[in-house]
Simulated scan of single mutants.
Amino acid sequence: MKTFEPIEIATNHDIKIELRTVYVVRGDKKDYFSVKSALNKLAYVRTQEQFNEEGKESNFPYKLVKQEDGTSHLCRGDMRPEFIERHVQVLEELKANFNRERKRENEIILLRKEYQKAKEKLLKVSNDLKNAEHEYRNLK
């Protein structure tokens, strides 16, 4: 029996709590609900680590921007084209690895199903053979 959380009861079940797969990316404080977003963030983290090791800047320098009220504000510079290119490269490698693993997992599942079918067929043939032997002995 499911026990309802207070938020579910208070909102007349308009908010529902479900158990979901959550992807936690090492190097980030946020959780992700899709493979695509988790891989994208991991690619960003790995690319940033590579740039840090190489001593390269990933973004252009901060710029001073005047706001509407006349005050100045520092804005982070845009990402450098080299960083974006490396990010795309790392992301494609991660996607290829993920797809390879998913394909391997699907092959394992298919092999297990084939094994189960073959095992069931073997048991059926074995039982049929035992029954045939029993009938043969009874005919003598």
Rank of each mutant, 00 (worst) to 15 (best):
K2S: 15
T3M: 13
T3G: 10
F4G: 06
F4C: 11
E5Y: 12
E5V: 01
P6N: 12
E8K: 00
H13K: 13
H13A: 15
I15H: 04
I15L: 11
I15F: 15
I17P: 01
E18D: 08
E18L: 03
E18V: 02
L19Q: 04
R20L: 04
V22K: 11
V22G: 06
V25Q: 01
R26G: 08
G27N: 01
D28M: 02
K29D: 14
Y32C: 00
Y32W: 05
Y32F: 12
Y32S: 00
F33V: 10
F33S: 06
V35I: 05
S37M: 06
L39N: 05
L39W: 03
L42Y: 01
L42V: 00
L42M: 06
T47F: 01
T47W: 02
Q48F: 06
Q50H: 06
Q50I: 14
Q50R: 14
Q50S: 04
N52M: 10
E54T: 00
G55W: 02
E57T: 13
F60N: 13
L64I: 15
V65W: 14
K66E: 15
Q67H: 12
E68K: 15
E68L: 12
D69E: 03
G70T: 07
S72T: 02
S72H: 12
L74Q: 11
L74N: 14
C75E: 10
G77K: 08
D78V: 09
R80M: 12
F83N: 01
I84W: 04
E85T: 09
R86N: 01
V90R: 05
E92R: 08
E92I: 01
K95F: 03
A96G: 03
A96D: 09
N97F: 05
N97I: 00
R102I: 14
K103L: 04
K103N: 05
R104D: 15
R104I: 14
N106I: 10
N106C: 10
N106K: 08
E107T: 09
I109P: 03
L110S: 13
L110I: 10
L110W: 09
L111K: 07
K113G: 02
A118G: 02
K119A: 08
K119C: 15
E120P: 02
E120M: 06
K124C: 10
V125W: 05
K130D: 09
N131D: 15
N131K: 07
E135Q: 06
E135G: 05
Y136F: 13
R137E: 13
N138V: 05
K140M: 14
